[in-house]
Simulated scan of single mutants.
Amino acid sequence: MDRKDRTTVITTERLRLRPLTEDDADWWVRLHADTEVNRFVGGYTRDQATVRLRAVEQQWTERGHGLCAVELRSTGDTIGRCGLNWWEQFGETEIGWTFAREHWGRGYATEAARAVLAWGFGPLGLRQITAMIHHGNTASSGVARRLGFTPLREDTVLERPCTVYALARGDASPPAGD
């Protein structure tokens, strides 16, 4: 993805990723309204979503990367989010993913994350990417392991305990599928 062109997207066999914007606030609220989704990432009001998405847009402007909406190429439906997030307090770039429950178990998180990792380690030139996964989120831990991540440390993110996984450039797992 070109750092200056926010309309450029990452595509995979089944998915299209585009930068999230403030215009996605209503969708963001709906995604996080599901109790199974928000038990690890929290819920949002419309105002909170707008503030969060403005921060995402700012990160795209300042760092050349951020979170993306994940859309099905076949229908254009937005099914989740995946992308890179800079954490100033940790000095780390994290990859994160969250998908609507009806799209779980289909390999979309792995597919989207693999493409984001290739972009992060390739054109963006990152040396290491972390994944901060809250305790009990076995599905996301499985995605991280399939991608080649290994546990780095225990930490607290957004007032919740998590395991921070790390992956160095060159260690990413290239095989497709789950």
Results as ranks from 00 to 15, higher is better:
4 K>V: 08
9 V>W: 00
11 T>S: 00
14 R>C: 03
20 L>Q: 13
23 D>F: 06
24 D>F: 01
25 A>T: 08
29 V>S: 07
37 V>N: 05
48 Q>G: 15
49 A>V: 01
49 A>K: 08
51 V>Q: 12
54 R>I: 07
54 R>V: 05
65 H>R: 01
67 L>V: 05
74 S>A: 15
75 T>I: 03
75 T>K: 11
80 G>K: 05
82 C>V: 08
90 F>M: 13
96 G>A: 15
96 G>Q: 12
98 T>Q: 06
98 T>G: 04
98 T>H: 08
102 E>L: 00
106 R>C: 07
107 G>F: 01
108 Y>L: 04
109 A>F: 06
109 A>P: 04
114 R>S: 06
115 A>T: 00
118 A>V: 02
120 G>M: 08
123 P>L: 01
125 G>V: 10
129 I>V: 15
129 I>S: 08
133 I>M: 09
133 I>T: 12
135 H>Y: 05
137 N>R: 13
138 T>G: 07
139 A>E: 14
143 V>L: 10
145 R>K: 15
147 L>C: 10
148 G>F: 04
151 P>Q: 03
151 P>K: 05
153 R>S: 10
156 T>D: 13
157 V>Q: 14
159 E>W: 04
161 P>E: 03
163 T>A: 06
165 Y>G: 06
166 A>P: 04
167 L>D: 05
169 R>Q: 13
169 R>C: 11
170 G>K: 05
172 A>P: 00
173 S>G: 00
174 P>M: 11
